[in-house]
């Protein structure tokens, strides 16, 4: 067992963990922070993406012991006082999620992109999200949402009235 101290979404936790414990399992099974899901075992799907000391990582491919002394931000730590971030709002308003399983990772990956590149093009967004798989949306509305969250024009989806 190894002693670790990790700050997750603003709360500091100290725990004894097996060295092999994955950060994703630490978050989910030990801390009960189940907002971060796991979708694969090869670090391809990106559903488990979290922010570790200011950069995204796939929490299924990081050991909890490697996060010792670090700050972790998950999708559960984004909204402040119930106020969604621009990305969360954009994902909602542009219908960028269906089943929602990839959404935490998508939002974290998009957040990382916008930190480095506040006004990305559609192409850059698609490249930046290459490590996050979605099976529902075909990605188009995710791209629209990231464009919208970065304050760029995107064709409006919401509140179209037909008939």
């Amino acid at each position: 067992m190894t002693h670790i101290k990790v700050n997750v979404d603003g709360t500091t936790y100290e725990d004894e963990v097996e060295p092999r414990l994955l950060l994703a399992h630490y978050l989910r099974d030990r801390l009960g922070l189940t907002g971060t899901p796991i979708g694969c075992d090869t670090s391809n799907c990106g559903a488990c993406t979290v922010d570790l000391d200011g950069a995204t990582v796939k929490s299924c491919s990081v050991l909890a012991v490697q996060a010792d002394g670090s700050e972790v931000t998950t999708v559960q730590g984004l909204a402040k006082d119930g106020e969604w971030t621009a990305l969360q709002r954009a994902f909602h308003e542009r219908h960028a999620l269906q089943c929602g399983y990839c959404t935490p990772g998508m939002i974290m990956a998009a957040r990382d992109l916008l930190r480095e590149n506040p006004q990305p093009t559609s192409y850059e967004i698609r490249q930046a999200l290459e490590g996050n798989l979605c099976r529902c949306t075909g990605y188009q509305n995710i791209v629209r949402a990231v464009l919208a969250a970065s304050g760029q024009e995107a064709p409006a989806v919401a509140e179209e009235v037909t008939a």
């Binding site: 990106g46 950069a55 990582v57 990382d112 490590g131």
Partner: peptide
Amino acid sequence: VADPAVRHR
């Protein structure tokens, strides 16, 4: 190489 999150680690 891989994707941004993997490149961070």
